[in-house]
């Protein structure tokens, strides 16, 4: 693992919303093909953190370097990073007026400038991979929550990203649908994708994560391997949180 290079490097990332400081100086780095699970109580800044990584939120201090490119006002860098970093949202955010196929091929055609036929063939492969090839011509509103989230994952993968961000991908799902989404994510992790996952699914963290980051009050309170984290946490906050959640 140590021979892999760092693909994301954050140093002293700070972010305020008005008076409220959401991030108080995050310094961490993430290696290629690493799966990092971010956990923490609500309002701890974990979602804000991963949203700064593709500049959905603009950090105010510190630096973020992704694959050697620093996130600044530079249009070119933002474009480059957004097309290399895929993101999956809690509320799926599929486009309701487009079919599943159109949802997936939209960005490859217009951002990657792929010919339509090629984009559609690739999309079918992705739908196959997430297990719902028969739904291609339906509208998102006609699918179940789990299916919608799998389409959202396929949509992100269609841009062939090097990094995937997951912002609580299973929180809006009914319990019986969580597993189908987690299975897709596990498969993705095994295939060597660099992933940063904000989640409350501790089982997923134990099983798949290479490293766990625990966020509280806008800081990384504790980090380590899942074994270390779940069996012998050092920090009191971590212990309290784990006792509440497990």
């Amino acid at each position: 693992m140590n021979d892999k290079r760092d693909i994301i490097v954050c140093e002293g990332v700070k972010k305020w919303f008005g008076d409220f400081q959401a991030l108080k100086g995050i310094t961490t780095s993430i290696k290629e093909q690493e799966v990092v699970v971010v956990i923490g109580p609500s309002g701890s800044g974990k979602s804000t953190f991963i949203r700064t990584l593709n500049r959905l939120e603009v950090h105010q201090e510190g630096t973020i370097v992704i694959d050697g490119v620093e996130l600044t006002n530079d249009l070119k860098n933002i474009e480059k990073i957004r097309s290399e970093v895929g993101m999956v949202f809690q509320q799926f955010n599929l486009f309701p007026h487009l079919t599943v196929m159109q949802n997936i091929t939209l960005a490859p055609i217009w951002v990657r400038k792929k010919p339509k036929a090629e984009a559609e063939a690739d999309a079918m492969k992705l739908l196959d991979r997430v297990g719902i090839p028969e739904q291609a011509e339906k509208f998102p509103g006609q699918l179940s929550g789990g299916q919608q989230q799998r389409v959202a994952i396929a949509r992100s993968l269609a841009m062939e990203p090097r990094i995937m961000l997951f912002d609580e991908p299973t929180s809006a799902l009914d319990p019986e649908m969580i597993k189908e989404v987690l299975d897709v994510m596990k498969e993705l992790a095994l295939s060597g994708m660099t992933m940063i996952v904000v989640t409350h699914e501790m089982g997923f963290a134990k099983e798949v994560a290479d490293r766990v980051l625990f966020f509280d009050y806008g800081l990384v309170v504790e980090e380590g391997t899942p074994e270390h984290f779940f069996t012998s946490p050092e920090h009191d906050r971590t212990k309290l949180f784990l006792s509440q959640i497990l």
Binding site: R5, D6, V9, T27, T63, V65, G68, E70
Partner: peptide, 9 residues
């Protein structure tokens, strides 16, 4: 923290 390219601050 290892940085491959020189940091372009």
């Amino acid at each position: 923290i290892q940085i491959e390219e020189p940091r372009q601050r």
